[in-house]
Each structure stands twice: as structure tokens, then as C-alpha cells.
Design a protein around this nucleic acid. Structure first.
Lengths: 246, 246
DNA sequence: GTCAATAGTTTGTCTTGACATATTTACGTC
DNA sequence: GACGTAAATATGTCAAGACAAACTATTGAC
């Protein structure tokens, strides 16, 4: 028996109709109103009830499938993914994630410089002549417990960064406020053991396991905006993600 | 100056038209025929030239954006992502990845058992009564160099697994051959240090950094098919991925 | 009870068409 | 050359419609 979905659709909203459906179904899944394993009504029925076209409904369903929340099969129907749903993989930052889960991160800027930058980062960021680099290192803690040590390079023609603002707000938040529209990031996750410098800052023993992450983020005009090297205490942080079949 | 794309479209092919476009553009990017940073012709033009509808062309473009290969902006156009494109995140296995990059992995099955399974894995897999579990541990090497130690549990009603077949082919390959249609996987990546057992098998020192990965994969009817714990030598393996803004 | 054929169900693919929005370019005026 | 406005460009959103393919359920024959 498929469940009837009660999704409010507001045609005067600036939020696209397909996205209102996405948010409605996501909300119902997260709240438990749509139970894992349950079958949804078919897409034609649902579109009709919400006065939406089938392609609009299909676009919403596709996004939910891509987010790992639904599975669909021709002739069978649509089902809420049974296993506990984790946050789907999307372009967000550590600070975004911590705030979203109600934690209170704090940031200490350990170093900050602004200049032409070194060749390696200029190459990674693919900077044109005349564009400089902000380079800074931060320690992020939750409560009083250190969690991550982050070194970043940001091109200097998209925002004005300072030590003050970096200790108060997340880097991505600052860049978005300055008008950067991030579209994608290349990321590499690995492992390392803490050296004495890292151990001292992160509050663990030298030799302890660290999760490492290197990332380069791109905006909607194709520019590489920032690149970074992060290390996280392995006892406090893992990367969780949903992989979806193409 | 936008480049003209030469993509062969075969309407008699079982491959969907939108997917032929995806493969054509992907191939051109990978071969260098479409250079990083270059602008593509607009979607209406391109659709018209290939005798495709605009929604079909847009579906192909959307997939390429999601794969991290293109960026698009209203009023501006479509551009090949400038930074070196890595493999987009999709549901594949270690064996798949190694084979794709031309490496020759080999597998040694260290243990294999078949039975009702333990409560923890039964819960993770959400098995109905009467369905049992294959449980096995494998060591995967490239050349003669150990790379990964993998412990998996697979529900026993989707395929017949054996020690022989597991040493010859990848687990995902066997399951797909048996008719499993994987749709998504939940995955958690972290770090640990090698204990003596792991170090002995992986050919590294105890205390060396290991990348850890836990995963549960789901098929197209919503069933949890397999769950696994893997550890990789950190000096030989990282997880690379493209994150895309939703 | 089993099996094959048929009908029903639902998603997947593709097309035509239109309007909205964000950005860039062109043009006229100063 | 700078500035403001309009036009052009290109993607983003939405709709209606049709056919195809994979799956499940039903029916009739044996």
C-alpha cells in the first residue's frame, strides 16, 4: 500500500517547484512520516495530485534517488531506502556540517599571509598574472576539543579575507557572502599518522591516526577558488557519504 | 569561440540518446579533444545539430555537470571544468577501479564461511528470517604488493559465492553477474593505525597509517546486499572524488 | 498445481513548446 | 571613454504528450 504524500506546493515561491517536492519528501523521510522501506504512490498519481507535470515530478524523484533517499524500478515503483540514510555527498564545508548538526565549532587562526603565493598553489589554483593568494592555517575545535587542522590558499580577487573574519566565520561562508557560487570540488581523502607539531595542536599522541583531505573548489565560471590541506583526528571524524549508481 | 562537438548518435542503439551524448562528451574531454576551460556551443545549437530535443540534451549536460566535468551558468554558457578531472564519485568497487586503470589486482581469500551470521551483520543487512550470510576476508594485492584487507558479509539469497570464485573475480562482479542491480551504497571513510595482524598481511610496519572504509550496498529493490570493512595502506591508496553542489 | 500468455502497472526515454532569469553585448548619449 | 538602456545570448524551469521497457498480476489451459 503506497503512502499518500502531503506536500505543500507554493507556486508563488521563488523555490522551483521540483525543489519544493524534493524538500517535502526529504522532510517526510527525516521526520519518519515516510518510513524506510515504504512504497510511494506512482509518479503520475503524485504529479496529478500536486498539480505538477510528470517531468517536474520526475526531476524531483531523480534528485532524491541521487541523494540516496529513494530507489526506483521500472514496473515496480518507488521505495524509501531502507537503510539508515546518511547525509548525501554534497559540496559543503566542515563548518557547515558541524553547524548543521547543532555543534558549536570554534576557530583559531594560527597563521595568515597575503601575497603572490608559491608556485605550487598558483598552479593548483591556475591563477592568472596579477592575482594573489591568501594563505592561512586554522585549528578548528568543537567545544574545547581540537578536531581539525586546516591549511588553505584562496585567490585574492574574489573576496577580502582577514584573520578576524576567519576566526569568526567559516571560510566557505565568507566566500559565498562575497558572491562566490561554488559548483564543485575535487577531493582526496587518505590517512596519515600525526607528527609532533600536529599532535601538539590536535591534542593527541604523535603516531595517532589522522584522516587527511586535500581539496580544490571550483565556482560557476570554472575558476579554482580555493585549495586546502586538512587533517582530522581519526577518533573524532570520518567522512560519511552515499554513493549512487550512475 | 565555442568548439563544435562531433558526437555520433546511433538511434538504433539500445544506449539511451542522452547517454550517448554523455559518453561522447566524456570521451572528448578525456582525449583532450575538448580542452579544459574551453566553452561548448549552446545547448539549443548542439541539440539541433545532433537532431535531439533540448530536454534530452539538457539531461546529458546535467549528468556531465554532476560528474564534475562541466560547469554551466545562465546567460554565460557551458565550460569544461579547468582543473584536472578525477574520477567522479560513483558506486564501484576497488577491483573495478584497479582494472579500469590497467592494473592487475590479485586476491587471496583468507577465510570463508557460510551460515546464519552474527546479529550485528544481520541487523546491518536487515535480513529476513531464513536468509543466511556469506562471511569472508580477502587480501587484495597489485603486482605482489598488498594493498587492501577486506572483510565482507553478503546475504546468501542473491548469489552462490565460493572461495574459488572470490579469488578469481571481484565480489561486485560476481554479484552483478548473478543479477544484482546495485543502486547505492552508504560509505564511511576514516583512518587507523595498523595493528600487528594487519601490518603482517599488508606488508607494512605496525603503527603505519591505514585508510579505513565501511560500506553497505543496496540494490534496486531496496535490499541491503553486502556490508564490508576494508583497510588500505595509506601510502598506496586514497579516495578521490568530485563533490558537486546540489 | 504449473505454465504460458495476456493485461495491468510503473518507470524510463524522448519530443515539442513556452516562459523566466541571469549574464553579456551592442548601442546611443554625454 | 564612461554610463545607462535595450537587445541578444544562454541556461533554468515547467508543461503536455507519446511510446518503450521492465516488472507484477491475472487468466486460461493442461
Amino acid at each position: 500500500m503506497s503512502q499518500l504524500l502531503n506536500i505543500p506546493i507554493d507556486r508563488s515561491s521563488p523555490v522551483p517547484l521540483y525543489h519544493q517536492v524534493v524538500q517535502g519528501i526529504e522532510g517526510m523521510i527525516r521526520s519518519g512520516a515516510l518510513e524506510p522501506g515504504s512504497r510511494l504512490e506512482n509518479e503520475i498519481e503524485l504529479a496529478s495530485r500536486l498539480n505538477l507535470s510528470r517531468p517536474t515530478m520526475r526531476k524531483a524523484m531523480d534528485e532524491l534517488v541521487r541523494a540516496g533517499l529513494l530507489v526506483r524500478k521500472r514496473g515496480v515503483g518507488t521505495q524509501v531506502v531502507a537503510s539508515q540514510v546518511r547525509r548525501p555527498l554534497e559540496l559543503s564545508s566542515l563548518n557547515d556540517d558541524l553547524l548543521r548538526t547543532g555543534q558549536k565549532p570554534s576557530t583559531r587562526v594560527l597563521s595568515f599571509s597575503h601575497g603572490p603565493g608559491q608556485e605550487e598553489q598558483r598552479t593548483t589554483l591556475q591563477l592568472p598574472a596579477g592575482v594573489g593568494v591568501y594563505h592561512f592555517t586554522r585549528l578548528r575545535s568543537v567545544g574545547n576539543k581540537p578536531l581539525a587542522l586546516m591549511e588553505n590558499w584562496v585567490r585574492d580577487d574574489v573576496a577580502q579575507l582577514s584573520e578576524e573574519t576567519l576566526s569568526e566565520r567559516g571560510m566557505y561562508d565568507l566566500l559565498r557572502t562575497a558572491g562566490v557560487n561554488f559548483r564543485l570540488a575535487q577531493q582526496r581523502i587518505g590517512a596519515a599518522v600525526a607528527d609532533e607539531y600536529q599532535a601538539g595542536l590536535l591534542g593527541c599522541e604523535p603516531g595517532a591516526a589522522l584522516v587527511t583531505m586535500e581539496r580544490t573548489a571550483v565556482d560557476d565560471t570554472g575558476r579554482n577558488i580555493e585549495t586546502g590541506h586538512h587533517v582530522y583526528r581519526a577518533d573524532s571524524y570520518t567522512f560519511e557519504m552515499t554513493l549512487v549508481q550512475r
